[in-house]
């Protein structure tokens, strides 16, 4: 699986036309087989926004503001001959106050759970983040130990994290958004896992009656993943005061 800008190759018949989608990094991103929403979660300051910018724009910034609200960026990759558009969502790490949790997780099919290898507390909080994720459904998850370039301040050993990941049966990788180490791998790993899940489920959970509420996720696939967001947006229509 690799980053790919040859996404204007022959379209499968079930691909729906999306006329306005553009992208910062490549043309023809309106052609894809699957759209996967993936969320970045983890404590504040672990490097979520820089992982996002490294993967989607190949950029890293030492002087970025803390994230407030939600932001996202996309990138298209190919996996087993399928064009996958990854829509990566990023939000603030100070999770307990967030009023937007449901809008953030809704429709997500994967998560990168990020900690900072120089701050043990961010690793200790993984359990809590996992719980929050599971509350919103079980997804494809990868644990990402970021800032692996800061060798002399490492406080969480690779073995320790590996052990944790194995215990929870989750993939694990160490990255450096600054040096662009393994960032590509972390994202493509989760995307291909999601793709495998979907391929494996194909034929068993097809639902032809998906309402248009489903428009933003799994756009052209018609495949229902366990937590597809059929409700939520539609439910809230209350009347005014």
């Amino acid at each position: 699986m690799s980053g790919d800008d040859a996404s204007d190759s022959t379209s499968p018949p079930n691909r729906r036309a999306t006329t306005h989608i553009k992208t910062h990094i490549m043309k023809s991103e309106d052609e894809y087989d699957y759209l996967f929403k993936v969320v970045l979660i983890g404590d504040s300051g672990v490097g979520k926004s820089n992982l996002l910018s490294r993967f989607t724009r190949n950029e890293f910034s030492l002087d970025s503001k803390s994230t407030i609200g939600v932001e996202f960026a996309t990138r298209t990759v190919t996996c087993d001959g399928k064009i996958i558009k990854a829509q990566i969502w990023d939000t603030a790490g100070q999770e307990k106050y967030r009023a937007i949790t449901s809008a953030y997780y809704r429709g997500a099919v994967g998560a990168l759970l990020v900690y900072d290898i120089t701050r043990p507390q961010t690793f200790e909080h993984l359990e809590r983040w996992l719980q929050e994720l599971l509350n919103h459904s079980d997804k494809n998850i990868i644990i990402v130990g970021n800032k692996s370039d800061i060798v002399n301040m490492r406080a969480v050993s690779t073995d320790q994290a590996k052990e944790f990941a194995e215990r929870h049966n989750i993939s694990f990788i160490e990255t450096s958004a600054l040096e662009a180490t393994n960032v590509e791998l972390a994202f493509t790993n989760i995307l291909s896992n999601i793709h495998s899940t979907i391929s494996a489920n194909k034929g068993t959970t097809i639902d032809e009656d998906i309402p248009s509420a489903d428009d933003n996720v799994g756009k052209s696939s018609k495949i229902v993943i366990s937590d597809q967001p059929m409700m939520g947006a539609k439910q809230k229509d209350g009347c005014a005061c």
Partner: peptide, 20 residues
């Protein structure tokens, strides 16, 4: 129709009083 939730964009406007 496009499934945009007001929380997606207006949270920051409220949280930081449009400063950003």
């Amino acid at each position: 129709q496009q499934e945009v939730d007001f929380a997606h964009f207006s949270f920051t406007w409220m949280n930081c009083l449009l400063l950003r």
